[in-house]
Structures are given as structure tokens and as C-alpha cells.
Amino acid sequence: MNATSLPHTPPAPSGRDVRDARADRLFRWALTGVVIFVLVALASAALSMLWGGRDVLASQGLSFFYSADWNPVENRYGALVPIYGTLVTALIAMLIAVPVSFGIAFFLTEVAPRWMRGPVGTAIELLAGIPSIIYGMWGLFVLVPVMTVYVTPWLNDYLGAIPGLGVLFRGPPLGIGMLTAGFVLAIMVIPFVSAVMREVFLTVPTRLKESAYALGATKWEVSWDIVLPYTRSAVIGGVFLGLGRALGETMAVAFVIGNSVRLSPSLLDPGTTIAALIANDFGEATETYRSALLLLGFVLFLVTFVVLAIARLMLMRLARKEGT
């Protein structure tokens, strides 16, 4: 019989191959378990808050989510005011933080001398480690007097007279309010967003920027036409990361927002957010009121989830466009 016609017998796996396959399976199972644990923990947290707020949800119905009437004495609860305050303060924070963060990131990557980039970047990143209560105290004792004496009167005199838009900038010179809370949140968010932008700006190939400079482009044109399009997806992800941070902030906002559950279109009037209202009232809440606060926590979970889901959809759409 010809030797080539003999059936081929695969070699037996060695002991190392068996150990590697076993370790790979264990590693895959461990990672799967971690993912399942995180998903179960998130679902458990959301469902526990929903279960805790079942009494108020049964008595108020869907009106809880769009009513502005918050009166614990008469057991009437509506989440519109804290939802409005949460979204408005986060929006103010991002309107301030995103351009400032972009300027910081571009300065550190393109404009600043090399000896300055490290110390300045480290100093800005260290701001992220300051406890939020410190920001709240700074806002109450430093920013609020500045808003009372200088900013609020100027806004009332100049922007408050604008038809339509002026209603946002008319209010008493108290210094506390949603605008002040937005400023404090912006300062807290800037280190996160600028750090992400700085890291992704460093990934832009040098040859692209040098080619643009060689063609006579200015630094602004390079940043707008080269750096931002190249890092667009990562920048949007960093912005929404900062937005998630702003939506859930508690102590810093509670110091400067005024903690009022009255709905007002003015940014200068006191207001409240979901997190601040829960932090202020949960310790002394009665059983029914505690149920309403737990349901508010579920609403905050939904708001954050929706925001992050929108961010994910935007990133997927951008990735699809770039792929095509």
C-alpha cells in the first residue's frame, strides 16, 4: 500500500494547548459574568426605585411625570419642575463647558509650548478630583455674591429687555438660581471633557496638520477643518460623558440652585434638580414622600439612560457615514 494513501491522524493536543484552551474559556466566562453582573445591577437599581415609588405612581398616575404641582403636605407630586431644572442646568453647563474645553484641548496640543503642556494639562485634570461639595461651597461664598452684584443686574438691564428672550434673564438679584448652578456644573465638567478632547486631538496624524499649514491654513482652520472632523466621534462621546456627569450632580447644585419647586422660565430664579431635591428631602421624608422621591430617582435614571442612548445613536450614525 502506498504511504500517501494512509489516513491522516491529527496529532494529539499537547498539555500546553489544553491548558491554554481551558484558560481561554475561563477568561471568556469571567468577562461574560462581569457584563451580566453590571446589567443585572443596573436593572436592579432601576426596578428597585420604581418599586419603591409604586404608591405615588398608583395614586398620581402618568400625571406625576408632567405635573408641576409638588406639595408634600397635600400629597400632590409632580416631577416637571425638577426634570426641567435638571435639563436646563445641564444644558447651560454644556453650552459653557464644550467651547472652553475645546479651547483648552487645542491650546495644549497646538499652541502652548512643550514645557507648558504637561503642567497645565495636569492642573486641569486635577480639578476632576476636587469633591463636589467644595465646588458647592465655592459657588455659594464666591460665585453667588458676584452674580448678585454684577451679573444679575447686567442681565436684567441689557438682556432682560429683549422681547421673547428677555424672560429668561429677568429675575431678582438673589445670586442663586439655575444660571448659577449651570456655571458651577460647567466648571466641574470642563476637566472631563477637555481631558477627552486633548487625548483624541493627540491622535490626529501630524502629516495632516503639517500639510494644512503648508497650504497656508491658520490654526483655526486646522482645528475646524482637520482636527475636529478627524476626531468627531470621540469628541461627541466625551461631550456626552460630561453631560451625564452634569445630569447626576447633587451637592454642588444643592448649594447654589435655591431648592425651590416653583416652575419659572427665568434662569435667575431659584429652582431645583432631581438629584438636589432627593438629597435635601430624603432624610426627613415621610413614607409617601419617600415613595415620590424614589420615583424621582427612577426618572433621573430614565433621563440619563435616554441621553446616553441618544449619544450612542449619534456615534453609530457618524460611524456609518464615515464607513460609506
Rank of each mutant, 00 (worst) to 15 (best):
G136H: 09
G136L: 07
M137T: 09
M137R: 15
M137Q: 15
W138F: 14
W138L: 05
G139R: 06
L140W: 09
L140P: 03
V142K: 04
V142I: 13
L143A: 06
V144R: 09
P145H: 10
P145C: 08
V146I: 10
V149I: 15
V149W: 09
V149F: 13
V149Y: 08
Y150T: 01
Y150Q: 09
Y150N: 06
V151N: 01
T152L: 05
T152I: 11
P153L: 08
L155R: 02
N156R: 02
D157V: 03
D157I: 01
Y158G: 05
Y158N: 11
Y158R: 15
A161R: 15
I162T: 11
I162A: 09
I162D: 12
I162H: 14
P163Y: 08
P163C: 03
L165H: 10
L165M: 15
V167Y: 06
V167G: 05
V167I: 13
L168I: 02
F169C: 00
G171L: 03
G171H: 02
P172S: 15
P172C: 05
P172D: 10
P173S: 11
P173H: 11
P173E: 04
L174N: 12
G175S: 02
G175F: 00
G175T: 00
I176W: 03
I176A: 02
I176K: 08
G177I: 00
G177R: 02
G177D: 00
M178V: 02
L179P: 01
T180D: 00
T180Q: 00
A181V: 00
G182R: 05
F183A: 01
F183L: 02
F183M: 04
F183E: 01
F183T: 00
A186Y: 13
I187A: 12
I187M: 14
M188Q: 04
M188K: 14
M188F: 05
M188G: 04
M188D: 09
V189A: 15
I190V: 06
I190G: 04
P191A: 10
S194V: 01
S194P: 04
S194E: 04
A195M: 11
V196D: 13
V196L: 08
M197Q: 09
E199R: 15
V200D: 05
F201K: 06
F201S: 05
F201Y: 15
L202F: 13
L202D: 10
L202V: 08
T203V: 08
P205G: 10
T206M: 07
R207D: 12
R207W: 11
R207M: 08
L208M: 15
L208Y: 15
L208Q: 13
E210P: 00
S211A: 13
A212Q: 11
A212T: 03
A214K: 10
A214R: 13
L215C: 10
L215D: 13
G216C: 05
G216D: 08
A217V: 02
A217E: 03
T218M: 11
T218L: 15
T218E: 12
K219N: 08
E221G: 07
E221M: 14
V222I: 14
V222K: 15
S223R: 14
W224Y: 10
D225E: 12
D225Y: 11
L228T: 03
P229E: 03
Y230M: 07
Y230V: 01
Y230L: 07
R232W: 10
S233E: 13
S233V: 12
A234W: 11
V235E: 05
V235K: 12
